[in-house]
Nucleic acid binder design. Structure first.
Lengths: 260, 260
DNA sequence: GATCAATGGACTGATGTTAGACCAATGAGA
DNA sequence: TCTCATTGGTCTAACATCAGTCCATTGATC
């Protein structure tokens, strides 16, 4: 079909003329979808993130609907639809009246190993995307922290998070591990960075939660966490980079291993 | 007014009970607004980003409305409203018929120095946020690249971008400088990273464009660019970090200097 | 036991957004 | 010179989302 071939050639030529870098990742990044979904879906996503990241731990309650809607920049109706979805999914419990509110129910049962693989396959290339992005964010954050130095308050916060994750009960481990990693991003002082780190952590969270918490892995992680903190407090960016990369490569290998 | 004081104390206690980490940056990051504005506003923002970042250079045309709407995940009507806004702002020119389309008009006249300061003051704390985030992203990207190594193709791309910015005419300098920096992010291979880098660059772009392009600054930047590339190609993460930090600190200081 | 402030629940009317179909104009190429 | 594929321009009906208002419920406190 020569006509077809000509057409396609014409298209390609036209594209490259009209749009230098048409296939450029930068162009794709700038012209990427403006919104990931409708307001309802994105709101559900955020609320689930708050639960899964432990920002609102089991038993705690979300802010009042009016406040929460304002925070999320969404109408109260949309927020209520999202909350109703979480309620029907058994993630939250809603109580009326003063001192009522939307409460997070207990943690969901641990997903089966098969579930983890399915989720990972659903992510596809997005898994590598997330792993790479996480590495860049955490390496960058830790480098900047080590190069810049910490205030006493920051030092205390970091050490307390480290101690918390080290002495965590198994059921609290993931939440406190998340808190530790997000604290590293948080200390850099950029809310954009904190948001990006929370976002990428959330994308990996389903997979991480599907990995059984083995005491051997915990011990490894504890040593690596300590190495990271030590390097940051010593103001040694090089050691910090190595420690972060070793730590993240470890869990990345663990994740990829679960795919077979 | 003791009643008032009691009330406030009650509120505080209630908040900390219901929402551990209420004032935590992580909580703010997770519960941040779901959308920055309505679809129309965000679309205008994206199109302006494409123009300002040089993704669609002057004289080139955007993809057809139907394609562009699909890419941006927005209805064609909303996209057209955004395009009409750009048209009225004199940024684009619309031609009908086959081989027609939406074309980017020439670059806008350079903003006055006072404009830069006003914009910077408008940004407020967001300026430090963007500068910190940029540093974390680029330091992290360059570290990962240096540690991981580049393929021949990637090496060529990076060198060609470096050569392009080094030999750029003054009016093309910002665009090619942007391309160079975004290429560093791009080579890491994470679309999330590329998107974040493009986003933060765009936030700083108005300010950068307001800085006069002095040949002295260009020469400094050229040396630093070469140092960055050399470190990445040498696989020397430590040198790469130092080179990136020196380069970014230079322009950050330049920017902050314009605020007085 | 009664009060009442804070909370979730429900409704209305207005505006934003979408999908899809169809019309109008253009100009490179037959 | 004429064709016609591609492009911007326009419209409609349906749905999503919003701001604002008022109602119903709860339980700590008086």
């Amino acid at each position: 079909m020569p006509a077809d071939a000509d057409e396609r050639a014409d298209e390609r030529a036209s594209e490259s003329r009209e749009f230098p870098g048409w296939n450029d990742p930068t162009a794709e990044a700038v012209l990427r979808p403006v919104r990931a979904g409708n307001a309802f879906e994105e709101t559900v996503e955020r609320l689930m993130a708050a639960i899964k990241l432990g920002v609102v731990p089991p038993g705690a309650r979300f802010p009042a609907e009016r406040d929460l809607a304002a925070r999320l920049g969404v109408s109260r109706i949309t927020l209520r639809e999202a909350l109703r979805a979480l309620q029907q999914a058994g993630q939250v419990e809603v109580r009326r009246g003063r001192f009522g509110g939307t409460f997070v129910t207990g943690p969901p049962p641990a997903p089966e190993p098969g579930e983890a693989r399915r989720r990972a396959e659903d992510m596809g290339p997005a898994l590598d995307d997330a792993l790479t992005f996480r590495q860049v964010l955490e390496v960058g954050a830790v480098q900047v922290l080590a190069a810049r130095g910490l205030t006493d308050t920051q030092r205390e916060l970091l050490l307390s998070r480290l101690a918390a994750v080290d002495t965590a009960a198994p059921e609290d481990y993931r939440r406190l591990d998340t808190a530790f990693h997000l604290t590293l991003a948080e200390l850099a002082g950029s809310s954009s960075l904190t948001a990006a780190a929370a976002d990428v952590r959330m994308r990996l969270n389903d997979l991480l939660n599907a990995i059984p918490v083995l005491s051997r892995n915990i011990e490894h992680s504890a040593v690596q966490h300590q190495a990271i903190v030590a390097a940051v407090l010593d103001g040694d960016p090089d050691a910090a980079r190595l420690a972060v990369i070793e730590h993240l490569d470890g869990t990345a290998a663990l994740l990829r291993g679960f795919l077979g």
